Simulated assay, not measured.
Amino acid sequence: MRGLARALVAGAVVILWAAPAPAQEARVRRGETIALTTCARCHAVGRVGVSPLAEAPTFRTLHRRYPVEDLGEALAEGIASGHPAMPEFRFDADEADALIAYLKSLER
Rank of each mutant, 00 (worst) to 15 (best):
P87R: 11
C42M: 13
G46K: 01
A96T: 07
E69Y: 08
E77T: 06
I15L: 15
A12C: 09
C39W: 03
A44V: 02
I34E: 02
A44Y: 02
A56T: 04
E32G: 07
P22H: 00
I79C: 04
P52Q: 14
E95M: 05
E32H: 04
L99E: 00
E107Q: 13
L99C: 07
A101R: 01
A76S: 08
G11H: 15
R60S: 02
E55L: 13
T33H: 15
E73Y: 08
G72H: 10
A23V: 12
V50E: 15
R6L: 15
V14L: 15
E95Y: 05
W17P: 01
A74R: 05
L8M: 14
A80K: 14
A74P: 00
A76E: 14
T38W: 03
A54F: 07
A40N: 07
P52S: 09
T61V: 11
L4T: 07
M86F: 12
L4E: 09
A12G: 12
G72K: 02
Y102L: 00
R64A: 13
L4D: 02
I100P: 07
L36H: 13
R47A: 10
I79P: 08
E69F: 03
P52C: 14
E107F: 07
P57Y: 01
R47W: 10
R65G: 11
T58M: 07
C42H: 11
C39R: 00
P52Y: 11
V14I: 15
H63C: 11
R90D: 04
Y66P: 02
S51H: 03
E107T: 09
W17T: 10
M1K: 04
T37N: 13
G49H: 04
T58R: 15
E55D: 14
G3W: 05
A35Q: 07
E69S: 08
V48M: 09
A5E: 07
A19S: 08
D97F: 02
P67E: 12
A96N: 02
L36V: 14
W17H: 09
L4V: 12
E73D: 10
P52W: 05
F89P: 05
E77A: 14
H63E: 08
G82H: 08
A21E: 10
S105K: 01
G31W: 11
A54W: 04
A54D: 13
P20Q: 06
D97R: 09
L53Q: 15
T37Q: 11
R30P: 01
F59Y: 01
H43S: 06
A98C: 12
A26P: 04
P52M: 14
I79M: 12
T33A: 15
Y66R: 10
H83S: 12
G11R: 13
G82L: 08
D92C: 04
C39F: 06
G49E: 01
A80T: 13
C39T: 04
S105F: 03
A5L: 11
A21M: 07
V13N: 03
Q24E: 14
P84C: 08
A19V: 11
G46S: 04
R65P: 07
P20W: 11
A44C: 12
G46H: 01
D97N: 10
T33S: 14
D70I: 04
R6A: 14
T37L: 09
V28Q: 03
K104T: 13
A7Q: 14
D94F: 06
A44K: 02
P52R: 10
E88D: 09
R64H: 13
A10P: 06
A26I: 06
G78A: 13
E25G: 12
